[in-house]
Design a protein around this nucleic acid. Structure first.
Lengths: 197, 197
DNA sequence: GTCTATATCGGGATAGAC
DNA sequence: GTCTATCCCGATATAGAC
């Protein structure tokens, strides 16, 4: 196995440079220069640029996911709405602090359009949120936190909104994200139903 | 002025190739080959690859926008909710038919992170939708279609949801978009209020 | 594990003829 | 307005020494 610290530091620097400039505009030479090592040193740890991009993606996917931000055991009938609201806002604020996160995920999204390998992982993340929300809402109903509704659809809506907020924030759009998320949670809690067409 | 038909056909083909493969992976040589012309022919019409990308973006921006899908004069007190629902669904379905649209906009979003020139235009489109929805909702209140609420926030939410649906559909996620959009419109129409924090 | 030096290729862009 | 031929550069990747 290669030296873990060098390996890690390459991933960290790549993450930053890829986010700032994109995959194509970031050459292996630039990464090497930023780390003050030579190009072949990179190729010793990663067999190709694509391998580096792939490993980085694996690391990112490992570090995110529904259960990082929403933990079922923290929820009670009494605090359910408030907790769901604050956990969601906390997630948004956390991602907002890492200015590179949204940018690099946008890059992987672009790759996903051409290579199913990336698309599958991205879809997996989103589906993880939707199934996580579904599970959480089911739990909420079971402990009597709120009346039953179409929880599957509500979970989809929460996933879409939380994903979209991240996107809009990255544009610098100063929308009332707190109010929007709070409203979405309230809608779920009051069991509002959409009219079928 | 250059021959309009050649100019147009370059833009059309570029649109498709850029969407399929991304800007960097699509070379001027590939575009030329696809059109069965030579590279210098392209450079006669567009001074550089970046100029081509920019002109294409201008054309795209010109062809989209709130008022393409939502026209205030079609709305009455009686049909307001139904019309807002169907116009939104129609917009989503239209964009879904052009498989290249979401992909190429994703590319311009990536460019926007590095060059404010693109970011400004993208933000302009989104703000156009938000101000369009605000105007439309204000009109709805003025004709008594529904009670007054925090229309600015509601307009932001509608913008985020409609943008997000397009995104999720492009992943191939089969969510209940019709129900979600209908629910969002209903929430606006019933004047639901988000609790301030 | 890391270096210097180099091979190889493909891309953007242009010169100059027609 | 379009062509053939070419320039030039930067990128990925490797050979081979230490």
């Amino acid at each position: 196995m290669s030296n873990p610290s060098t390996y890690e530091v390459i991933l960290d620097t790549s993450y930053r440079l890829f986010a700032e400039q994109g995959f194509e505009k970031t050459s292996m030479a630039m990464i090497a220069k930023e780390l003050d090592v030579s190009k072949p040193a990179l190729y010793y740890h990663f067999s190709s640029k694509e391998a580096l991009i792939d490993k980085l993606f694996e690391e990112i996917c490992r570090s995110i996911g529904f259960h990082v931000y929403f933990q079922l055991e923290n929820y009670t009938a009494k605090n359910f709405g408030a907790r769901l609201t604050s956990d969601g806002l906390n997630m948004i604020h956390t991602q907002r602090e890492d200015e590179h996160y949204t940018r690099i995920m946008n890059q992987y999204q672009a790759l996903g359009y051409r290579d199913p390998k990336y698309a599958r992982q991205l879809v997996g993340i989103l589906e993880g949120f939707t199934s996580g929300f579904t599970e959480l809402l089911n739990y909420g109903v079971s402990i009597g936190a709120f009346p039953e509704g179409n929880l599957g659809v509500q979970a989809q809506m929460l996933t879409m909104i939380i994903d979209s907020m991240d996107n809009f924030m990255s544009y610098g759009l100063e929308y009332d994200y707190e109010v929007i998320w709070t409203q979405a949670v309230n809608q779920v809690m009051t069991g509002a139903e959409g009219n079928e067409l």
